[in-house]
Each structure stands twice: as structure tokens, then as C-alpha cells.
Write a protein that binds this DNA or RNA. Structure first.
Length: 489
RNA sequence: GUCCCCUUCGUCUAGAGGCCUAGGACAUGUCCCUUUCACGGACAAGACACGGGUUCGACUCCCGUAGGGGACGCCA
């Protein structure tokens, strides 16, 4: 049997979870599930300055919300390590890294470097001015290890750098998305492995961890493509088996620049707050760089899982189009059953302080009516608001309707006929009859008839069908609303 | 500047040398449904960046050019 497929998502807890990160996590998740592999969550928190516990928690919450459950990594509830290859937080793997650094130092593949930032800068500039690539090799690359250790023992600060090959060597990978990609070793200079404070950097930790955690496939974004060279050098230095790489295209803003905060909402949390469904966000993100063989665009996570394949990953960058996201979201929203949909909407209405009847039948009827108007969960606020009498108001667009000659009689008659009813709610049939009666009594039909009634019901001349809408409102409410309109005429 | 990646309708994409008069989806427009609006349905408009090869034949392969993006950190 082949080695079991193991993939990982390795976010850095330096902020919220980005939609780009979410897509990377999704691809990893889908590939693992599709192939019955293991999905590992690893926390890359070697940048102690910027990493925060709060970001970690936020990102974990976002991943949970998206349903991208991991098999190994920090436990989703208590964040304790869960799995055989821990610790899963790089900040807790220092002793492991030190062991490997020591090997590199001993074998001369890495060295202590005492160069100052200024010296480094100067070497870089002279190289560029000479028309050479701006990569520099350290003047300390051939100094003796014993001597360096002596200097450090006496209190001097040093970084550890990797000693890149003296001659140009071509490193190459067979990227699962891009095919063969070659990197000349001269693309990089002697790069830092360990900071002067003793904490190793991303490129090093990433390789050690992927190797030790037996990662077989690395799905990540294209911005990491050029990091791959440094990583290949480290893999080679330890004779580690190299995983398969799949560099997905970047997600861009409308201006074709890499998606960033100035493009608006870019975090998973923001979309959640905007009223998007996790299944919709997953669906939309999957389609940014991947397509279903069936050509279908609205797909559940189960469909995504069964249809996912690397071959259908696209190598060119994709613009994040919020309009399409809305459509995907609306489609998923409409596919929800009323009980589930209500559960999602209820807290939103509560926060907006909108009160509606408790009855399940009432709710189901209201959702049936409003579902086709909703693109996001938050749209429910504007939809349900008019049903709560305390928010009833006459809109600007109702002005024209109210200016018609016949409007007043229509509304007066409408009110009069409701007053005669003694039931709490009107049935659809009762409403239809009542509307007919208004038509006959006033001799008014068409727009002149139902627009005034609609204004008397929801304050606007446009909106959902009256015969479904009216039975959702108490007759006492209907009368109160009619009174408000009449007072305002 | 150097290196790497990318280039099909406005946007997401299909396309593995003849199935391409380039297909679908979002958005747009028109019409139908509807006593309004939304949903739904129909139709329309809309793209192979450019130039050279290779080939009987190129959206597909190769080379250039242009444009875009990424990397060149003691960030990831």
C-alpha cells in the first residue's frame, strides 16, 4: 500500500483568517477527504512579534465555522495538541529545530554569521549595481565553527545562515499545478535559518515539520513558489523525501492586485458577519481556481469532496467577485429547509430587535415568502422589519402612490372592511375576497388598487405578494398601519 | 534591476492539435411569467494579448514581445 496521504494547512496567527488562506485550507481538506488521507493543522508562529493567541483562536473559530475539520493539530476546543506528530505549534518545537540546525552547522552546510544589517545591505547594493542578482553570500560562510562558537559564548549575537552552493545548480520541482518549474540556485544568497534571538525562520521550520510530520502533498498559494527553492536546498541537506507541491493561483482584487484589506471584506469572519453561509463561501472559493468536471457551479461540500482533483486546478490568478459570491450564497440559502434557515435568521432578528410571532407555521410561511428576496442572511432584517409594527413607516417611494386621487378611499375602505372582521389573522382567501370588495366598492383596479393597499401594509408600493404577506399580519396591526397612513395624508 | 509564475467574454471558467461558427456560469440588456417587486424561464450582446514559427491544420505545441502578478526579510 502507498503511504497514506497527509496534507496540512499551516497558517500564521498574525491576524484573522483571510479568504485566500481559507481556500488553501479548503483544497487541503478536500484532497485529504477525497483520498481518505489526514488533514493536519499546524501553527506557524515563529514570528513572535506578530503572532498572538487571539489570532490563533479567531482562525480556529473560522476554520470550524467553515467546517474544515482537521484530524491532527491543536484540538478545536481546548487547543491542546492532538495527534502523533506534535507539537503542532512551531513555537513549541524549538528543541527539534535546534537538533537539526546543529547537524547543519557540524556538516558545514550552515554557518554562524555576524554580519550587520548595514553590511548586508551594502553587499546587496553593490551586487545590484554591478548588474548581478541582488543575492549575497556571507563573508562568514567559510569561517570555522569553533571560532564562531567562541564569539557567541562571549556574548556576541549571530544568525545561522544556509550555505548555498558555490556554483549555479538548477533545482526543479514537478508542480502538480504548474508542471516543471526550475529555480537556479543563484536566485538566493546565503539565507537566514535562525534569527539572532535563536528562533528559526519559516523556510527552515516548514521543511523540518513537513518532513517529520510525513506530509505527502503541499497545497499552498503561489506566493510561496519562490520559497520552494530555499526549501529544496534544506530538503537536500537532510536527504529528506520531498513532498509533492501544488501551488494554487493567487486571489486578486478587482484591480488585479493581490487581494488585500483595501479591497473591502477579505476575511472569513467578515463574510460570516455579513450573513454569508459557510457552505456558500466554500463553494465560491473552490471555484476560484478549480472547476467541477460536471460544469455545475452550486456544489455542496460533499460534492466538492467527491469531485475534487488536482488536475482541475487552474494556474492563472482569479479575481474575487463579490457579486458572484452573493449569487452562490443566495442559491445555498434557498436550498435550506425552513427550520435550518430560521435557526440562522433568528439571532440576527433578535440583535436587530425585531419581534415576530413564535408560531412555526407563521415562520415557515414568512420564509417561503421572503426566501427568494434574500441573498444574505442579513437581508432578513430589512425583509422582516416591516412585519414588526414598531418599525412600520411610510417610505419615500410610497409618495407617488399616496398622491393618487383614489388612494385615500381605497385605504379607508380597506381599513373599514378589516375592522368588520373579528379573526386575529386573515386567511389568504379572506384577503382575496376583501380585496375584491374594495375593488367593487371603490371602483378602482390594478395598480391603483393594490399599491395603496401595499403601502398601507408595509409602507412601500413594491414588495412581496400581498396575498401571502397580509395573512402574516394581525388584523389589529393592519388597522393600526392603515391609520398611520391615513394620518399622514 | 534579477529570478519565477501567469495571459480565453467585464468577472469565474470549459477547452489535452481537427469535435470551436470557442461552450457554461455571474453580471448586463430585452422579452415571458407576475395586477408590483423578487424568484423562475427564454433570447441577446460579449473573449482565445500581440508577433513569429512547427503542422495539411493551432485557443491548444515552441520561441519572442507586451502586459499583469509574485519573490528577492532576522514575515509567512
Amino acid at each position: 500500500m502507498q503511504n497514506k496521504i497527509r496534507v496540512r494547512f499551516a497558517p500564521s496567527p498574525t491576524g484573522y483568517l483571510h479568504v485566500g488562506g481559507a481556500r488553501t485550507a479548503l483544497y487541503n481538506y478536500l484532497y485529504a477527504r477525497k483520498n481518505h488521507g489526514t488533514f493536519v493543522l499546524r501553527i506557524e508562529d515563529t514570528d513572535q512579534e506578530r503572532s498572538t493567541e487571539e489570532s490563533l483562536k479567531m482562525q480556529i473559530e473560522d476554520l470550524k465555522w467553515l467546517g474544515l475539520n482537521w484530524d491532527e493539530g491543536p484540538h478545536p476546543e481546548n487547543l491542546q495538541d492532538n495527534g502523533e506528530y506534535g507539537p503542532y505549534r512551531q513555537s513549541q518545537r524549538l528543541s527539534i529545530y535546534n537538533e537539526y540546525i546543529e547537524k547543519l552547522l557540524e556538516s558545514g552546510k550552515a554557518f554562524y554569521c555576524f554580519m550587520s544589517d548595514e553590511e548586508h545591505e551594502e553587499l546587496k547594493n553593490t551586487a545590484i549595481q554591478a548588474g548581478k542578482p541582488g543575492q549575497v553570500n556571507s563573508p562568514y560562510r567559510d569561517k570555522s565553527l569553533a571560532e564562531a562558537k567562541k564569539r557567541i559564548a562571549s556574548g556576541e549575537k549571530a544568525v545561522v545562515r544556509f550555505r548555498v552552493p558555490d556554483q549555479e545548480v538548477i533545482y526543479s520541482i514537478n508542480d502538480l499545478v504548474r508542471g516543471k518549474v526550475e529555480f537556479p540556485s543563484t536566485m538566493v544568497g546565503d539565507f537566514v535559518l535562525v534569527r539572532s534571538d535563536g528562533m528559526p525562520v519559516y523556510n527552515f521550520c516548514c521543511v523540518i515539520d513537513d518532513a517529520l510530520m510525513k506530509i505527502t502533498h503541499v497545497f499552498r498559494a503561489e506566493e510561496h513558489l519562490s520559497n520552494t527553492l530555499r526549501q529544496l536546498m534544506i530538503y537536500e541537506a537532510f536527504n529528506f523525501e520531498i513532498p509533492k507541491f501544488a501551488h494554487a493561483s493567487l486571489i486578486l482584487g478587482a484591480d488585479k492586485q493581490k487581494l488585500s484589506k483595501r479591497h473591502g471584506a477579505t476575511s472569513v469572519g467578515q463574510y460570516r458577519e455579513l450573513g454569508y453561509l459557510p457552505q456558500a463561501l466554500n463553494n465560491f472559493l473552490a471555484l476560484l481556481g478549480w472547476s467541477s468536471p460536471s460544469g455545475e457551479e452550486i456544489l455542496s461540500i460533499e460534492q466538492l469532496t467527491s469531485e475534487f482533483s488536482i488536475e482541475r486546478l487552474n494556474s492563472s490568478p482569479a479575481v474575487f467577485d463579490e457579486t458572484k459570491l452573493k449569487w452562490v450564497n443566495a442559491s445555498h440559502l434557498r436550498a435550506l429547509n425552513h427550520a435550518d434557515l430560521w435557526q440562522l435568521i433568528e439571532p440576527i432578528l433578535k440583535i436587530a430587535n425585531i419581534n415576530v410571532p413564535e408560531s412555526e407555521a407563521w415562520r415557515s410561511q414568512a420564509l417561503e415568502l421572503f426566501k427568494s428576496y434574500m441573498e444574505t442572511l442579513n437581508d432578513s432584517v430589512e425583509l422582516f422589519k416591516p412585519l414588526d409594527i414598531q418599525y412600520y413607516e411610510i417610505s419615500e417611494e410610497a409618495k407617488e402612490t399616496l398622491s393618487w386621487e383614489t388612494t385615500k378611499v381605497v385605504i379607508e375602505q380597506w381599513k373599514k372592511l378589516i375592522v368588520q372582521k373579528d379573526s386575529e389573522f386573515l386567511t389568504e382567501e379572506q384577503f382575496l375576497n376583501l380585496q375584491d370588495q374594495v375593488k367593487n366598492d371603490c371602483g378602482v383596479k390594478g395598480k391603483q388598487l393594490f399599491m395603496p393597499i401595499r403601502v398601507a401594509v408595509i409602507g412601500k408600493p413594491h414588495g412581496a405578494e400581498l396575498k401571502t404577506l397580509v395573512p402574516l399580519l394581525k388584523t389589529t396591526d393592519l388597522i393600526a398601519r392603515a391609520n398611520i397612513v391615513l394620518e399622514n395624508m
